[in-house]
């Protein structure tokens, strides 16, 4: 029994969640608290992976990051970073597909922090950064935590986009969902059953924990 897919899935999901949370916090704060040109468009672009087939998303990423593209060529030739068909590709696919699941609850949580509380802090002499750190973030923390859990769960289940960008290389880029597909295709019902069992228990646990976060008291 090869547990590499499980190890890789945890590594990819964890890395992707950190990146998603960092980018998602900035994006959801901007969308919730600031007015700027192109805000609605930015919101739509972030949410698009929710409604687009993951293969289409993967195809976009493959085109953008492959060595044949300007960005992919630059990363590979100048910085020596290869994205496509590496675990980094799987991370990027997970980030893009989990971002909307983070931004939705985080943005709602930021919007729920009253401007009056933030203005009170400003009037008490606090800078914008201090206001975010001491008022906005603590009061939005429940929605942010829920978003992070959802993003992590989405990243562990990522299949289509990951397959397109990272491929299915056993021991290199074969994540849990891809390994299940592989096992089922090759008639290895034993492996498929075990992996399916793991991911079922895992995702149920994650959703339960997320639910507790959202329902819990302040």
């Amino acid at each position: 029994m090869d547990f590499f897919p499980l190890y890789l899935t945890i590594k990819v999901s964890f890395t992707a969640t950190v990146i998603t949370a960092a980018a998602g916090l900035v994006l959801s704060w901007l969308l919730a608290k600031k007015d700027f040109f192109g805000k609605t468009l930015l919101d739509a672009v972030i949410m698009q992976p929710l409604v687009m087939p993951p293969t289409v998303l993967g195809y976009y990423l493959l085109s953008a990051l492959g060595r044949g593209s300007a960005l992919g060529g630059f990363l590979s030739d100048t910085l020596g970073i290869d994205i496509v068909f590496t675990w980094k590709g799987a991370v990027i696919a997970s980030v893009v597909s989990s971002l909307p699941l983070f931004v939705k609850p985080a943005k709602a949580a930021f919007e729920g922090v009253s401007v009056e509380l933030e203005d009170s802090a400003r009037l008490l002499g606090k800078s914008e950064f201090a206001v975010v750190r001491s008022i906005t973030l603590p009061l939005a923390k429940r929605g942010i935590a829920a978003g992070a859990v959802m993003a992590f769960a989405r990243a562990t289940g990522e299949f289509g986009a990951t397959l397109m960008v990272a491929g299915n290389i056993p021991g290199v880029t074969q994540t849990l969902p891809i390994a299940i597909y592989d096992a089922a295709q090759s008639g290895d019902g034993f492996t498929a059953n075990i992996l399916v069992g793991i991911i079922t228990v895992f995702s149920l646990t994650v959703l339960y924990v997320a639910g507790r976060f959202l329902k819990g008291r302040d």
Partner: peptide
Amino acid sequence: VPMRGRRVGFVFQDYALFPH
């Protein structure tokens, strides 16, 4: 001058105490 630099004390109608 931004709010933080005006040294204006402001008490809102519903007080706006920080709930956390």
